[in-house]
Design a protein around this nucleic acid. Structure first.
Length: 153
DNA sequence: GCCAACGTTGGC
DNA sequence: GCCAACGTTGGC
């Protein structure tokens, strides 16, 4: 089993939105970055667990845990001309963009803030904390996963 | 709202 | 294939 982190802006789609979805499950659509796409398309498997990260907000950080419940399939928002994620180069037969379905597992008791992670020597080699990192889907090492999960509890 | 860092596009 | 211009991300 692998561990991941996925970013989303709480004003657009936060962990509370996911909790309110049917079956507390939703498709992670709108990813338009090749590296992030490849992680979803090639590496994310059912049962993999994911940190839900709130980005671009007052207190960026990890707010909870979700799980992969459906492996990659065509991101249909790329086919919809009315969607802001529309991409003429993606077709049904030859999709350029993919998504997975994720299910809410739980919320942390304590938000694990970016600030807190930055100040923790144990986490210093996390990809999330590297300079200039903008990737919205990242793998998490098991040791970091366990450590952060214990802080968030 | 600013801006550094990065990714993508397209002319050549 | 290079690289300037542009767009986006996301912390601050």
């Amino acid at each position: 089993m692998n561990y991941w982190l996925m970013k989303s802006e709480p004003d657009v789609f936060g962990i509370d939105h996911l909790m309110q979805c049917e079956n507390q499950t939703d498709s992670w659509d709108g990813i338009r970055n090749y590296q992030a796409r490849n992680f979803m398309r090639d590496d994310m498997k059912i049962g993999d667990q994911i940190f839900f990260y709130h980005s671009n907000c007052k207190e960026p950080g990890i707010v909870g845990i979700m799980q992969v419940v459906k492996e990659s399939y065509c991101d249909h928002t790329a086919l919809n001309k009315k969607s802001k994620y529309y991409d003429a180069k993606s077709t049904k037969d030859n999709p350029r963009w993919f998504m997975v379905d994720v299910k809410f597992l739980r919320k942390f008791k304590h938000l694990v803030t970016l600030k807190q992670m930055r100040s923790d020597a144990v986490l210093s080699d996390m990809q999330l904390l590297q300079k200039g990192n903008r990737l919205s889907i990242l793998p998490i090492a098991k040791k970091h996963w366990t450590y952060i999960k214990n802080i968030g509890a």
